[in-house]
Design a protein around this nucleic acid. Structure first.
Lengths: 345, 345
DNA sequence: TCCTACATGAGTTACGTACCTCATGTCTAT
DNA sequence: ATAGACATGAGGTACGTAACTCATGTAGGA
C-alpha cells in the first residue's frame, strides 16, 4: 500500500487527527493511554514522518554556524573553503550556514564568540578549536541553551558536545607508524616527529598512536622526542635544524600537525631528501605539492567535504531529535599517496 | 530576505503564476521572449526550486532497481547487504528500492532482466554486470525508454549509461603497483597476478594499471602473466598451484578480483606465507579476515555504502534532470590496512 | 448536583509546488 | 472584418504535516 500518513494513524488508532498531531509533536492534553495507543499504531502500520512535508509546514530553517579557531591556518582554510562551496552551491536545503573565524591563538576570543552565539538562537554550532577549560565551559553553556554542538577535526571531550566529527587520531597515528615502518624497511632507523603545536588534542593523539604502533609491533624504529613549533614557524625551523644537526642519521620524518612547509624547506636540496621518508597529515596545497614532487611519501587525511556535510547532517538531526546513520557519519582515515592523489579535490 | 518562491518570480517578472509554472515545468504555450524573461528573473532573484515541496506536490516516488550480475558473489553480496540496510533503515525519502540478482554467469539472463524492466516503468536502474554486447544493447534500450541508468563497480562504456558509480580501476591497479613495490623493497621480485575472471572490465583495468606503474617507475618487479579462474575456484586453484611450482621465488601476490580464499588456502602453512606480500581488492569477510591475521598486507577497496547512496542520488538527479555534485559523487579508492580496518563496516 | 479541569474531535489555514480548467486578450491569415 | 490559433491570467485543488481555535464530552471534586 501507499506510504501511511497521519490520517492512517488516526483511522487505525480510532482517534482524531488533532490527537495524533498532539502526540507526534509532544503537545500536552493527551491521556497516557491514548499516547501509547497512537504509538502502537504508528509501529504497526509503519508510519514514518514525511520530513519534507513537515519542514514545509513548519517553515523550518536550520541556522548553523562553524567556528574555526585552530592554530593551523591551512587545515581550517580547507574546511572554510568547503563550507563556502556548499553555501554557494545549489540546493541548500533549508539550511543557513555561517562561518566565524577566530584570530589564531586567541583562546579567550574563541570562548567569547561561543558565548555570544547563545543569544542569537542558532540551531547548531560546529567547533574546531583547541581544548581549553574556557572553550569547554562555553560549550556546556551552549548545550544548556539548547543549541546542538559538534566538535570538528579535534575533539573536546567532557564538554557535553553531542558528537565528534572527525577521525580517530590515535588510529591515524598508528597508521602513520605502520607506513613509516613499512617504508623504512627492515633496517628501520631514527624518525623525527614534528608538530606545529601540541596544544591541539589531535596532535597529541597522533603522536600517541604512532608510538604505540612502533612499540606494539616491536619495530626497529627509533622515534625521537617531538619537536614543537609553539605556533611559530621560526621556532619550529630552529628546532628542526638543531635536531638535524644532532642526528645526522634521521631516516624518517612524521609531521603530526602544521609546519610541513618549514620542514620541507630545510630538507630540500640536501642529499637526505632523496632517501628520507616523509609522512604528513591533512591535504593542503603544501602537502599536495609534496606528494606530487615526491618529497612527501604519504599523507594521512580526512575527507573535508564529507566532514562538513556530516557536521551539517548531525547538527540537523540532533536539533530535531532524529536518528543519524552511524555508518554514514563515520569519518574515515584516508591514506593519500601520489598515486591516488587525483582522488581528492 | 526569505528564500524566493514562484510567487516572487511572477511578481518580479511581471507575469502570472501560471506562466511561471509553465516555464518551470516545460509546458507549452509560452512565447520565447517570455520564457527568457522568466529565466532572467529566476537568475536575478536566485530562485531555487524547493525540492521537498515539489516532490510533495507531484507525489513523486522514485522507483529504483539494482541489478546485480557479476560473477563474484562476494562483492555483489556486499552491495546487496548495503541496499537492504538502506531499505530497512529509517527515512527512505520517497524512494522505493529493489534488488534483482541474476544467476552467476548467465549473461543472457542479465540482458533479459534488463529488457523486462522497460515495461515496469522504473525511474532508474543501477547495473553491476560484465560488459557484453547483449548487456550494452539492453542498456541502450533502457535509455531509449527514458530510464536513468548507472553502472556500478565495473563500467560499461558506449552503452549510453548516464553515469558510472565506482572507482577508477586503472588508478586502483597503479596504487596496487605502488604498494607492492614499496612493500617488496629495493630487492623487488616476482609477482603473481590472479583473477577470478578477466571478463569483468574492472579486473582487466586493474591489471593494466598495475603493469603501467611497474613499467613507468621502472620498479624491480617482475609481474607474471595473469592466472585466471574463469569463474571456477577449482580452475583457479590448479592454475595457482602450477604457477607456484613453476616459480618458487614468487615474493608477491596481487589478486585483481575474486578468488582470494583459494589463494590464501594454498599459501597458508607454507613458509612462503611469512614473507610474501599479498594485495587484494574489495573488503569481503575473507579479505577482512586476511588483514586481521596478517596474511593479506593491503586491500584496495571502495566504500560500498557511499557507492550505493551515490547511485541512488545520481539516479534521482538524472530522473528529474537536476544537477549532481561531482565532488560528492566521486568514489574514492580506499587503501585498507590492518591498522585502519576498523574504519570500514 | 453543578462546576471545573481536562481529553478529544472537528475544522481551518499555511507551507511551496504541480497540475488543471476556463476565460480573456492579441496577433495573423484569409 | 472575422475566425482561429496562440499567449496569458485568474483561480482552484492537492500533496502531508504543523499549529491553531473552538466546541463538546466526560470524570471527579465540592
Amino acid at each position: 500500500m501507499l506510504r501511511p500518513t497521519v490520517k492512517d494513524i488516526a483511522k487505525n488508532a480510532g482517534v482524531s487527527l488533532a490527537t495524533v498531531d498532539r502526540v507526534l509533536n509532544g503537545r500536552p492534553g493527551v491521556r497516557k493511554s491514548t499516547i501509547d495507543a497512537v504509538f502502537k499504531t504508528i509501529d504497526e502500520i509503519g508510519y514514518v514522518r514525511d520530513v519534507g512535508a513537515a519542514n514545509l509546514a513548519r517553515r523550518r530553517e536550520y541556522k548553523l554556524v562553524f567556528v574555526l579557531a585552530d592554530g593551523d591556518s591551512q587545515s581550517s582554510a580547507a574546511v572554510e573553503n568547503k563550507i563556502n562551496e556548499i553555501i554557494s552551491g545549489p540546493s541548500t536545503e533549508r539550511t543557513v550556514l555561517e562561518v566565524i573565524k577566530a584570530p589564531e591563538g586567541d583562546l579567550h576570543k574563541v570562548a567569547n564568540i561561543l558565548n555570544s552565539l547563545r543569544k542569537k538562537n542558532y540551531d547548531g554550532v560546529a567547533i574546531m578549536a583547541p581544548e581549553t577549560p574556557l572553550v569547554r565551559d562555553a560549550i556546556l553553556h551552549l548545550k544548556e541553551a539548547g543549541v546542538s554542538v559538534v566538535t570538528l577535526v579535534s575533539d573536546i571531550p567532557d564538554s557535553g558536545r553531542d558528537h565528534y566529527v572527525g577521525i580517530d587520531n590515535v588510529a591515524a597515528g598508528r597508521i602513520a607508524g605502520f607506513l613509516m615502518s613499512r617504508f623504512l624497511g627492515q633496517q628501520g632507523g631514527k624518525v623525527l616527529v614534528t608538530s606545529g603545536s601540541m596544544r591541539l588534542r589531535d596532535s597529541v593523539e597522533r603522536r600517541l598512536g604512532f608510538d604505540s604502533y612502533i612499540l606494539d609491533k616491536n619495530q626497529p624504529v627509533n622515534a625521537l622526542a617531538t619537536v614543537e613549533g609553539h605556533d611559530s614557524i621560526e621556532i619550529l625551523t630552529n628546532a628542526v635544524s638543531n635536531a638535524l644537526l644532532l642526528h645526522p642519521d634521521i631516516r624518517g620524518f612524521y609531521s603530526v600537525g602544521a609546519g610541513i612547509p618549514a620542514l620541507l624547506a630545510l630538507l630540500r636540496g640536501t642529499e637526505r631528501m632523496e632517501s628520507a621518508i616523509v609522512i604528513a597529515h591533512d591535504l593542503t596545497p603544501q602537502t599536495r605539492e609534496g606528494l606530487e614532487n615526491e618529497t612527501i611519501d604519504a599523507v594521512i587525511a580526512q575527507n573535508v567535504g564529507h566532514m562538513v556535510r556530516s557536521a551539517i547532517r548531525v547538527l540537523k538531526a540532533v536539533s530535531d531529535g532524529s536518528q543519524i546513520d552511524p555508518a554514514q557519519e563515520l569519518i574515515r582515515i584516508d591514506i593519500v599517496l601520489k598515486e591516488n592523489l587525483f582522488n581528492w579535490s
